[in-house]
């Protein structure tokens, strides 16, 4: 691991200012992804700003009837919150489908959103990777791509966003609140938070330099049957090949987002609108323009079947 200066921030705007004005600075939340990547020298921050003392770990109701989740609320705390289990079941389900108990106890809400979009070639520093080393090429294209994305990719990157929590946040239309170095706040819809790679795969989110996530807000509960179904190579502690977050109402309308198939949680308005017509129609809309490889084209029929299973479960609920 490369050497770094460690600092504990005492207020959110101060943390943002410090990050913006210190070259090579990064925020440190739980650290479960960042420290792993630092050991491999894939991440090489020269300055870490620990944000655990900012009082950002509360989960509280909003005046509008939603729920405001502090950036530092742990995955376990969020999945366990009785309001989340009751009103946003898809979120609780998505969180406990990811990682391990140990990681969920340490990982935070904002840190989970900011985990790197990554693939095995990103981890292997002997391989070309435009995300790790911009301009070096992409060894995943033409390589082993079973886990990788089938849509939203580019000529420079086909990595998949690996998280589960964000797929549920996408289907729930969550909003991400941030503070910038000047102390100004802004709200970023989750739909606009994760970027597609295009020709800059090293830039993964809409955050500006130094901008710090302070909370994630859920709109008022939307009811429905809430399902998170994850298909993976082993029954626990593995990334999704395909995951489906769905909220389906009694009349068959609803919302659906996919994990494991794209560089960000994947949801389209046209696919939501097609839900009453069945899983084939939904998948047709979700995967318009998909460019799977020979190694991952199985994800298209797998997604169709997983959505069908979620819809069948909703009908029987």
């Amino acid at each position: 691991m490369r050497s770094f200066i460690y600092e504990r921030a005492t207020d959110p705007a101060g943390a943002a200012a410090s990050a913006a004005h210190t070259p090579g600075a990064k925020f440190l939340a739980g650290g479960t992804n960042l420290i792993d990547l630092m050991k491999l020298e894939i991440e090489t921050p020269t300055h870490l700003i620990d944000v655990q003392d900012l009082g950002l770990d509360r989960i509280e109701p909003t005046v509008g009837g939603g729920l405001r989740i502090g950036a530092m609320a742990t995955n376990t705390a969020l999945a366990s919150d009785s309001r989340v289990r009751r009103d946003y079941g898809v979120l609780s389900r998505a969180i406990v489908a990811g990682a391990s108990g140990q990681l969920r106890n340490k990982a935070t809400t904002a840190g989970n959103l900011l985990q790197r979009t990554r693939c095995p070639y990103f981890y292997d520093t002997n391989q070309a990777c435009n995300k790790r080393s911009p301009g070096s090429g992409c060894a995943a294209i033409g390589g082993i791509s079973r886990q990788l994305a089938v849509i939203g990719t580019s000529e420079s990157c086909i990595a998949t966003y690996p998280g589960d929590m964000a797929v549920a946040l996408r289907v729930l239309d969550a909003t991400i609140e941030t503070v910038d170095p000047a102390g100004a706040t802004r709200m970023i819809p989750i739909a606009e938070f994760h970027r597609l790679p295009a020709d800059t795969p090293q830039i993964e989110t809409a955050l500006a330099p130094g901008e710090l996530i302070t909370s994630v807000t859920l709109p008022p509960p939307i009811g429905g049957t809430q399902i998170y179904r994850k298909v993976r190579d082993r029954a626990s502690y593995a990334f999704a090949l395909v995951s489906v977050a769905a909220v389906i109402q009694r009349d068959g309308t609803g919302r659906v987002a996919l994990g494991g198939v794209a560089p960000r949680p994947w949801r389209t308005a046209a696919a939501d609108a097609a839900l009453p017509q069945g899983s084939q129609a939904v998948v047709g809309k979700l995967f318009e323009g998909a460019r799977p490889t020979g190694g991952n084209e199985f994800k298209l029929p797998l997604a169709e079947r997983t959505i069908a299973a979620a819809m069948a479960k909703a009908r029987s609920a």
Binding site: G31, D36, L48, K106
Partner: peptide, 29 residues
């Protein structure tokens, strides 16, 4: 593994189990 994959380093911090390999000691003041 030293990368949070195997759990051999599991300890409890404030009663909660974590992977001690993926945590800086300084985070635990």
């Amino acid at each position: 593994c030293d990368h949070g994959q195997c759990g051999a380093c599991t300890v409890m911090v404030e009663g909660q189990r974590i992977n001690s390999c993926l945590s800086l000691a300084l985070q635990h003041e």
